[in-house]
Design a protein around this nucleic acid. Sequence first.
DNA 1: AACCGATGCGCG
DNA 2: AAAGCGCGCATCGGTT
Length: 367
Amino acid sequence: MTGELDDKVASLKKKADEIAPPHPREETWNWNSPRQAKEAFSLIGLQIPDLKRENLSKYEHPLAKAVSEYRDTRSLLSQVCKWAAGRYRDGRVHPQWNPAGAATGRASCTSPNVQSLPKGEGFRGCIRPGEGHVLVKADLSQIELRVLAAIAEDENMLKVFRSGGDIHLNTAEALASRKVKKGDPERQKAKAVNFGLSFGMGAKKFKEMAERDYEVRMTLSEAKEAKHKLLDAYPRIGHWHAREGLECERGNFITETLMGRRRVVEPDYQGKPSFTERLNAPVQGTAADILKLALARLWENWSEHQGALPILTVHDEVVLECAAEDAKVTARWLSGILRGAVEDVLGHPELAGEDAIETTTAPSWEV
DNA sequence: AACCGATGCGCG
DNA sequence: AAAGCGCGCATCGGTT
């Protein structure tokens, strides 16, 4: 796979070099160097502020597209080509896990970072169980929004979960002003909006996101209005924001998850407790608590499921490996424990329904 | 040679 | 009044 990427990178570089003006000093341009790339664009009369994909896509000139594609592919290759090199033992990759690697209580992972292996490119398909075994994967569906509903005690949000609804779909429909289906790209984009607004994103950023992802153009005041409209759908979220704002004014740097685990947030540019961190920390942190509670209970019960092997976790997801014939039992065990953890920590049965856990059994980590 | 901040992007 | 959050990693270009 990396060999194919290699070829693709080489041809994309050639293409970009052909379109580009000659380099005044070197043989060819280094498109990985923002300074050089900006200089090349400047020679054809384009002053570009940065080399982000999203920015390059605004330009008509073929060089913009060529450079963007080259950088994308090159970046993917870099991330993946050395991913597991020299990190095998017995046919397995053994990353370094840091159980409390993140300030919120999440785990992090290095060498390699398993948690950021790209999706949808086939790389996760390379993560496979041993002969005659399967991977059993379970994830906490929309966990941060469930935590949010519990923390803010928002009746409308709870109602959506109680009826098995989909918050992202609601938001997507509100933004697109039409019916949106589960597989539509609008839903994916609405996730970002939901998270953004929940954790204190401003109208400006919200406006930019709406433009970029929905081709919805609005003035700043219209963006403010839309933001309020979405927050109005869940009034207690707004109240919660107001409460946390007061805590910031009072100089309260301490946040707590629903399990009572503390985090001291960073100061903002004024030296006051960061408002957005105060909002995010208990939510991300409680979700992390839930996953870890579940992991602890898996361990406590492990003697009855010794064939099951923990493979990895990714913040709201647990992957186990077991013998193919044990898949059903293992899947039930895993999802039951995750569901119990959600219910025990959040204290709302409607947040821990059947749909709170999505379980799949597969021959690889891909999808 | 080792380290560092900035930039940009992968994941949740 | 206003404010998305949390990570790791490759690369560049400069400093120690």
